[in-house]
Amino acid sequence: MDIATFQAYGYFGITVFMVVALYGYIYHLYSKKKDAAGIDYESYSNMALNDDITDEPVNKVSDKETKKVGE
């Protein structure tokens, strides 16, 4: 298999994968309506509206959870 064929297959395969992933995501969003923490996606809009430092976070980082995310 020469490199151009490989390129074509790679391109096709990845495009299909991405399309499936994207449509899967659409399905996921509209069927589940809530994320893993049980929070309605739409309520995340409040992160912009109630963004004072004393406002209650939509999804609070709990104290006992270790902050291993990010870096």
Partner: peptide, 12 residues
């Protein structure tokens, strides 16, 4: 992000 109080990340 590492020291945030809001666990979820806003779209921005």
């Amino acid at each position: 992000i590492g020291m945030r109080r809001e666990k979820s990340l806003y779209i921005s």
